[in-house]
Simulated scan of single mutants.
Amino acid sequence: MDAMATEPLVRDIMHTPPVKVTPITPVNEAAQIMMDKGVGSLIIVDDSDNLIGIVTKTDIVREVVAKGLSRNVPVGNIMTKNPYFVLEDYTVKEAAELMGTHNIGHLPVLSRNNMKPVGMISKRDIIRLAPHYITLVYVLQSQVEKR
């Protein structure tokens, strides 16, 4: 039997539907959406629902709160543009490797069919649903930090 067939896939553990906003969404509104939905990040999409960025709670704290900026600043001003992402049929191991190598905690999940956002996967999802892979995330992350 193919070893990959037994590997859990991103689609099996991702949060769906993804929580999306546009780049003109004010930070205070984005923060409220995160609180209401219980998520730590939002996918930023254009008018055609294409992934253009991601914003996390950490981004809001670091780029808005700590710098004393207006809470009305658009998320497009602080988002990570062209973020790393995974496709829904990637293995959880591949997602964990990407997170560890690039020291990121959230990955948008795109559909292989149309490359539109269909979910989000986080380190917390991996810890909860595939805990044996979280070691991989932190081992790779520590190797990157030593460079």
Rank of each mutant, 00 (worst) to 15 (best):
residue 29 E to L: 12
residue 32 Q to W: 05
residue 108 P to G: 09
residue 12 D to S: 09
residue 35 M to S: 14
residue 67 K to A: 07
residue 98 L to M: 13
residue 107 L to E: 02
residue 74 P to H: 11
residue 23 P to Y: 10
residue 110 L to S: 12
residue 59 D to N: 06
residue 133 Y to P: 00
residue 115 M to T: 13
residue 32 Q to A: 13
residue 113 N to K: 15
residue 128 R to H: 03
residue 79 M to K: 05
residue 66 A to E: 11
residue 139 V to R: 11
residue 68 G to E: 10
residue 101 T to L: 13
residue 85 F to P: 01
residue 113 N to R: 07
residue 104 I to C: 07
residue 114 N to F: 03
residue 21 V to T: 03
residue 28 N to K: 15
residue 34 M to K: 06
residue 23 P to E: 11
residue 83 P to K: 10
residue 49 D to F: 04
residue 34 M to V: 01
residue 112 R to H: 13
residue 5 A to N: 08
residue 123 K to M: 00
residue 84 Y to I: 15
residue 5 A to M: 09
residue 122 S to I: 05
residue 88 E to H: 08
residue 52 I to D: 03
residue 14 M to K: 05
residue 94 E to L: 07
residue 109 V to H: 01
residue 46 D to S: 04
residue 52 I to T: 00
residue 91 T to K: 05
residue 96 A to W: 03
residue 139 V to K: 11
residue 50 N to H: 13
residue 142 S to P: 07
residue 120 M to S: 06
residue 144 V to A: 15
residue 75 V to S: 06
residue 32 Q to F: 10
residue 23 P to M: 12
residue 112 R to I: 13
residue 49 D to Q: 02
residue 89 D to L: 11
residue 94 E to T: 11
residue 73 V to E: 07
residue 69 L to V: 12
residue 74 P to L: 13
residue 90 Y to D: 09
residue 49 D to I: 05
residue 56 T to A: 02
residue 129 L to M: 00
residue 53 G to L: 06
residue 130 A to T: 02
residue 32 Q to H: 13
residue 80 T to L: 04
residue 42 L to K: 05
residue 102 H to Q: 13
residue 83 P to L: 05
residue 115 M to G: 05
residue 97 E to G: 09
residue 127 I to F: 00
residue 107 L to N: 08
residue 8 P to S: 13
residue 101 T to R: 14
residue 62 R to D: 14
residue 145 E to A: 15
residue 24 I to M: 07
residue 67 K to V: 09
